[in-house]
Amino acid sequence: MNQTTAHPAHLQHHFTDAHQQAESAKLGLWIFLLTEVLLFGGLFCFYAIYRSWNPDMFHNAHAFLNVWMGATNTVVLIVSSLTMALAIRSMQLGRRKHTIVFLSGTVFLACVFMVIKYFEYSHKIHLGQLPGKWYFFEGIAGTNPHIFFSAYFLMTGLHGFHVLGGIAVITWLIIKTSRGSFSPEYYTPIEMTGLYWHLVDLIWIFLFPLFYLIG
């Protein structure tokens, strides 16, 4: 809305050139990722403290998570991260169709992740392995096993919301790309989304062993 004729269509008036604009966007996004790390950080702290207080309970409770579902989801997210990176690379090379394919692949894999998550959650809800006062499962020895499931649902839940957000944004990117909004000169939104998506993957890389493997 603020363009003047001398500028490319995507350049805003208060930047001197596209490079400055792209660099600003990227720095802004990295700072946003920093706030994401600290947002999740609160939950990691919560996990670390209660784990250090009740290591046995955490160990007993983690045995009730399905390692294979978790591992599958890890693989799914890693591959989706790869397709995201390749989507950016394709746009850098000007191969718009490849970009659309890779982005669609990413969305598909993200949906697979959510479907697996759905099966995991519904199984736990069925058994009563629920957070806090909703917990009614019997069979986990140790103090306050409901706290383990509070941590589990909060951390994977917050992560899940980020996956959903990613699906929405990437779908929007697919539409924009197919309309030809991006080019090898200007693909900042794809690059930004890519960084975000990799962070979502990165957080899962830690969630997976903390919950499924060592508890």
Binding site: L38, F40, G42, P131, G132, H146, S150
Partner: peptide, 26 residues
């Protein structure tokens, strides 16, 4: 961001009862 997650946890504690800050739930 840490304030954000803290307040969110407190809200959840009140609404859902997640038991992280509530001594009655450990």
């Amino acid at each position: 961001p840490v304030l954000g997650i803290t307040l969110a946890l407190l809200m959840l504690e009140r609404v859902v009862g997640i038991g992280i800050f509530d001594p009655a739930m450990g």
